[in-house]
Design a protein around this nucleic acid. Structure first.
Lengths: 130, 130
DNA sequence: TACAATTATGCAACATTGTTGCGTTTATAA
DNA sequence: TTATAAACGCAACAATGTTGCATAATTGTA
């Protein structure tokens, strides 16, 4: 029922998320918004973009919530994001890595909805610096 | 070099974490401590217990950091916790589930340290209520 | 093109979670 | 029993996220 509006701030936020190679936190996004809008507005835009399935939320291994575009995901199913997230312990960046289908061994009385798979370590750009 | 002390508060916090069937957040732990000590002290105790490898940190899918005892983990290796975490979307509880060895497909220029595997859904006790 | 409806925003205020500094207390080894 | 360093309490601060409400802006429709 609700009509979706495409505001300047919303377009800017989405553009920022989409043009970045790694997932970004609200803080990082707000820093790049360059005062086009308020801090609170960024929170609300992110919330809407998640609901519209244009971006998705990823929790980093330190608990920081990051946002990444839903580029390579099949929105038809909308439930499974069957890819893996790499969390660099050096630069703290979170990167999406292509499909990784895994077999799980979970007791049948658990109802599985989504699988979150994150791997920590050192990303290519951080390891080449050393 | 540092001498480890076993204080009343530390014992209480560890006991709380160990006697709970699911992982607990700082907030939940502090609520159970019953004012034996300050809020800040709980943070510092948790930090120490993690360092001493008596408990480990788990990030829930909502970004909340939880703590669970290192009961069934092999401390010899200390690096891999090759088990899976189930995050119930109804009661928000985080439960450790037995070993799940998985095969990953990660580009060779990424240096893998740890694997974090969390599954969301509905836990047995929440699904039986319905 | 103008208008009405309602979505989106800004601002202020608040809540929660986590951190730091420092003086005091307490556990432990000698 | 005592010295010493670890642990603590308290206050203050910082970061992150939320809510209410008045105002602004977008979009479909007349």
């Amino acid at each position: 029922m609700a009509i979706i509006r495409n505001t300047i701030a919303k377009k800017a936020v989405f553009e920022i998320i989409q043009s970045n190679s790694t997932a970004m936190s609200q803080t990082e996004i707000f820093a790049k918004v360059n005062n086009i809008c308020d801090r609170v507005t960024v929170y609300r835009i992110l919330e809407r973009l998640v609901k519209e399935v244009k971006i998705h939320k990823i929790v980093n291994i330190n608990g920081v919530i990051n946002y990444a575009p839903c580029n390579s995901c099949e929105h038809e199913q909308q439930v499974h994001h069957d890819h893996l997230h790499f969390s660099c312990t050096t630069c703290k960046k979170l990167t999406c890595i292509s499909d990784n289908h895994i077999e799980l061994n979970i007791p049948s009385n658990y109802q599985v909805a989504e699988v979150f798979l994150t791997v920590s370590g050192i990303c290519p750009s951080c390891s080449t610096i050393l």
